[in-house]
Design a protein around this nucleic acid. Structure first.
Length: 493
DNA sequence: ACGCACGTAAACAAGA
DNA sequence: GTCTTGTTTACGTGCG
C-alpha cells in the first residue's frame, strides 16, 4: 500500500519563470538560503530544487567535498563555471527523467527484487513497515536499492563520474547510515558488484596523480540505461506515471516536471508533509536540480556552493576531479585494460574489453544494448515531444529491449546448473541474440562506441539549454556579456 | 518447480 | 605481514 500523498494546501510560488531565473541568480549570488528562509517564513511551497540546499545533515555540519579549492580562482569564475558544469552534469546525469522518477521504496533484504512496475502499487514489504524508506528517520533500515543502484548513484553523484572503491564505500555510508552498522560483508558485495556487473568499468588513472591502490570506477555508458532502468524499477513512485515519461528531446527534458519530494525526504517534512512538485517551466527555464533531490529519501548532504563550485572548476578547468585525475566526466579516458587472463565463466574473452572501450567498435555488433543506445539516439531526435501518447508508445517499444543488468551474469554464474544456462541461451536465441554477443562483464562486443557521441549530444543539448538559462539569468543580473562568454567556454571541453 | 535477480560468503591473487 | 582491492565461485533467498 503506497503512501497517500496529501494534496498541497500551500500556495505555490507564482511566476514560474521569474522564480526559476531568480533561483538561479539567488544560488549564484549565495542568497538562496536567505530567500528560502524568507519563503519558509511566508509559508510558501517551493520547488524541490530550491529547497534542497536547506536540507540539513543530521549532524548539522556541512560535509566538505574532497579536494581543495583551486587556488587563485575568483569566486565569480567559480560560480559561473560551476553553473555551467553542474547544469551539464545534472542534465546529463540527474536530469534524466527516469532517474528523477526514482524514489526509494521497495522490497527489503537479499534476493528481493525491486521490480515493481511503475504503475503498480508498492511492495507490501516496504522498508520500515508501511513507511517509505527514509535514511534519516530509519537509519537502520536496509536501503531498498540494490548494490548496483547504490554504486551507480555513488558514481553519478561524483563530479567526475568516477570513484575509487573507497569513495564508493564512503558515499554509501554517508547516504545510507544503515551500512555503518551493517556487517562488513556489504563492502565485499560492492566489490563483487563492481567486478561482476558489466555496467561498471575501471578507469585508467593518472599515475602522476595516483589516488593510491585501486582504480577508479565509472559507469559504462553502454549500460547506463540499464542502470537507470534498474533504478527506475527499484522503487514505486506515487507519481510514476508523470515522471516515467521519457523525453523526446532536450526540450522535453527541460519541460518535464522535476521530482516530487518523497515523503521521507527532509524537505517533505520541512513542508509539513506536502508532496511537492516543481511546476512545469521551472526546469525549462534553467532551474538547477540538486543531486540530493534526485534520490529522494537518501540522506542528503548539505550543499556548500563554494565547495561545489570548486569541484566543478576542477572538472571543467583541470579536466576533472583533480584527485582522480579525470579529464572528462563519464569515461572519456581510457579504461583500464583487463588482463587477458585465463578463461573464466564471466570473461571468456576478456581481451575484448582489455582495450579502450572506444576502440573495440569493430567487434561490436547490434546487441541488445547497442539497439538500446541507437534507439535512444533516435528517441532524442524526436521533435514531437509534446505528443504524450506517442511518448507512451515509445516507452512500450523500449521495454522489450530492456535487458536486466545481470541477467546473463546471473544465469551464467549458476553454471553448475547447466540446465539453467541452456534455458537462458535458448531464451536469448528466441530474442535473436547471438550467443557470442553476451553483454558480459569484460566482454563487450555488442555495439560500436556510441557513448562519446551520446555524450556530445547530451552536452550539446545541455549547452543549448544553458543558452536559455543564461539568457534568463542575464535578464535579471544584467551580466549579458560575461554570461555569453561563459557559455562558450565549456564547449571547448 | 523453475528461472531470475540479488545478496552474501569465501577463496584467492596482487599490490600498497 | 597486514590491509585493501579486485576477481571469481558457490550458494541462499525472495519473487513471479
Amino acid at each position: 500500500m503506497g503512501p497517500v500523498m496529501p494534496p498541497s494546501k500551500k500556495p505555490e510560488v507564482s511566476g514560474i519563470s521569474v522564480a526559476s531565473a531568480s533561483m538561479s541568480h539567488l544560488y549564484q549570488t549565495g542568497s538562496l538560503s536567505r530567500a528560502l528562509q524568507e519563503a519558509e517564513e511566508l509559508d510558501l511551497v517551493l520547488p524541490v530544487h530550491l529547497a534542497l540546499p536547506l536540507a540539513p545533515l543530521p549532524g548539522g555540519a556541512a560535509k566538505p567535498e574532497k579536494g581543495t579549492a583551486t587556488p587563485g580562482m575568483e569566486d565569480e569564475e567559480l560560480t559561473n563555471l560551476n553553473w555551467l558544469h553542474e547544469s551539464k552534469n545534472l542534465l546529463n546525469s540527474f536530469g534524466d527523467p527516469v532517474l528523477r522518477s526514482v524514489s526509494p521504496v521497495g522490497g527489503e533484504g537479499g534476493g528481493t527484487r525491486n521490480g515493481d512496475p511503475d504503475d503498480t502499487p508498492p511492495s507490501p514489504s516496504m522498508v520500515g513497515g508501511d513507511l517509505p524508506y527514509d535514511a534519516q528517520r530509519n537509519p537502520n533500515c536496509k536501503p531498498p536499492y540494490s548494490f548496483s543502484c547504490l554504486i551507480f548513484m555513488a558514481i553519478e553523484d561524483a563530479p567526475s563520474k568516477r570513484l575509487p572503491v573507497k569513495e564508493i564505500y564512503n558515499w554509501i555510508l554517508e547516504h545510507f547510515p544503515y551500512f555503518a552498522n551493517a556487517p562488513t560483508g556489504w563492502k565485499n558485495s560492492v566489490r563483487h558488484n563492481l567486478s561482476l556487473n558489466k555496467c561498471f568499468k575501471k578507469v585508467d588513472k593518472d599515475r602522476s596523480q595516483s589516488i593510491g591502490k585501486g582504480s577508479l570506477w565509472c559507469v559504462d555508458p553502454e549500460y547506463r540505461q540499464n542502470l537507470i532502468q534498474a533504478l527506475k524499477k527499484t522503487p514505486y513512485h506515487p507519481h510514476a506515471q508523470v515522471f516515467s515519461t521519457p523525453p523526446t528531446s532536450p526540450q522535453a527534458y527541460q519541460s518535464m516536471s522535476s521530482p516530487p519530494i518523497w515523503p521521507g525526504s527532509p524537505f517533505f517534512r520541512k513542508n509539513g508533509g506536502v508532496l511537492l512538485q516543481v511546476p512545469q517551466g521551472v526546469i525549462r527555464n534553467g532551474a538547477r536540480m540538486m543531486s540530493q533531490g534526485l534520490y529522494p529519501g537518501i540522506r542528503p548532504l548539505p550543499i556548500n556552493p563554494l565547495e561545489s563550485r570548486t569541484a566543478a572548476v576542477r572538472s571543467v578547468l583541470s579536466g576533472g576531479y583533480r584527485k582522480h585525475s579525470i579529464s572528462h566526466p563519464a569515461c572519456d579516458s581510457p579504461l583500464v585494460s583487463s588482463d587477458p587472463k585465463e578463461d573464466h565463466t564471466y570473461s571468456t574473452n576478456q581481451s575484448d574489453d582489455g582495450s579502450d572501450y572506444t576502440s573495440d567498435s569493430s567487434l561490436r555488433s547490434n546487441g541488445p544494448v547497442a539497439r538500446d543506445v541507437a534507439n535512444d539516439s533516435d528517441f532524442d531526435d524526436e521533435d514531437d515531444e509534446d505528443d504524450k501518447s506517442k511518448i507512451q508508445l515509445e516507452i512500450k517499444k523500449e521495454e522489450p529491449r530492456d535487458w536486466p543488468i545481470d541477467t546473463i551474469d546471473s544465469a551464467l554464474s549458476s553454471q553448475q546448473h547447466n540446465k539453467k544456462r541452456h534455458h537462458f541461451l535458448k531464451a536469448k536465441q528466441r530474442m535473436g541474440v547471438a550467443s557470442d554477443t553476451l553483454p558480459l562483464k569484460k566482454r563487450r562486443t555488442e555495439k560500436p562506441p556510441e557513448s562519446d557521441d551520446e555524450e556530445m549530444k547530451e552536452a550539446a543539448g545541455s549547452l543549448l539549454h544553458l543558452a536559455g538559462v543564461r539568457a534568463c539569468l542575464n535578464n535579471i543580473t544584467n551580466r549579458t556579456a560575461k554570461g555569453q562568454k561563459e557559455q562558450k567556454e565549456p564547449t571547448k571541453n
